[in-house]
């Protein structure tokens, strides 16, 4: 049974139709990738699924429940975490405060929030070294880890990640993707949006390719990695000219 089912999702970005009927599914325990070039509608898809943006039509079902019209904060409460594009940590708040807010919905249970924070620190030791540092002063990689850690504070059933390796040095990007794998091993389902198709297809179980607001291809990640159309459009045929910096 799918944990997340999206059917015929339509949404606008400003005056332009950004999604013209997007459908996909994510089963419990999977890593599913949503690939596509800039402007294909990847970010809009995530933002609409997690309630930051209103769907014009279509349906989003999460854990068997229709969440299409729910506001973002209630979708988070239902167990769908979202690490947004550009990380969006709270720059003037410290690392510890950012994580505290990740656990906002469980704020009455201080002990549980503190325990979960310790687990996040164990996963990202670099964060544990500087709990009092303002998040705005962290490096890009550390900010990404903080953004992921913040979303993990509530132990979401599904974690949606929007371009988590964007702008990161290759080594740091590798570390982030390793963390994503680890998160899945701990039982969280992952939906990852990426421009960097190479690495993502190695990580994901299945993938969908989005083009101008529509799903144009889908299948197991290993098959898509061999697909000529995907190679031509996103892989450039040669890993050395990987589109990610």
């Amino acid at each position: 049974m799918s944990l997340l089912r999206v059917e015929g999702l339509r949404a606008r970005y400003g005056q332009v139709e950004a999604l013209s009927g997007v459908s996909f599914e994510v089963a419990e325990g999977e890593i599913v990738a949503l690939l596509g070039s800039n402007g294909a509608g990847k970010t809009t898809t995530l933002r609409t699924v997690t309630g930051l943006q209103r769907a014009r039509s279509g349906r989003v079902e999460f854990a068997g429940r229709d969440v299409t019209r729910l506001p973002a904060h209630r979708i988070v409460a239902a167990g769908l975490g979202h690490v947004p594009e550009g990380r969006r940590v709270f720059p003037a708040l410290t690392v510890a405060e950012n994580l505290l807010l990740g656990g906002y919905l469980r704020r009455r249970d201080r002990a549980a929030v503190a325990a979960r924070r310790a687990e996040v620190y164990a996963m990202f030791p670099q964060l544990a070294e500087r709990p009092g540092q303002p998040a705005g002063l962290l490096s890009g990689g550390e900010q990404q880890m903080l953004a992921i850690g913040r979303a993990l504070m509530l132990r979401p059933r599904l974690l949606a990640l929007d371009e988590p390796t964007m702008g990161l040095a290759p080594q740091t990007a590798q570390r982030v993707l390793r963390a994503v794998r680890e998160i899945r091993e701990q039982g969280t389902t992952v939906l990852i949006v990426e421009q960097n198709a190479h690495q993502t297809l190695r990580l994901a179980d299945r993938a969908y390719v989005l083009e101008t607001g529509r799903i144009v291809l889908s299948g197991p990640a290993s098959e898509l990695a061999e697909d000529d159309r995907v190679k031509a459009a996103y892989l450039g045929g040669d890993p050395a000219v990987d589109p990610a910096p």
Binding site: T50, G51, L52, P71, A72, H73, V76, A77, G81, H82, P84, R88, V89, F90, P91, A92, L93, E97, L100, L101, G102, Y104, L105, R107, R150, A151, L154
Partner: peptide
């Protein structure tokens, strides 16, 4: 307080605040 911290967060980034489950 957590609520006060959430207020500061809201002042910095409304969408990111919503993604923490904060009822804006």
């Amino acid at each position: 307080t957590v609520t006060g911290t959430a207020m500061r967060a809201l002042a910095m980034d409304r969408d990111a605040a919503r993604l923490q489950g904060i009822d804006v």
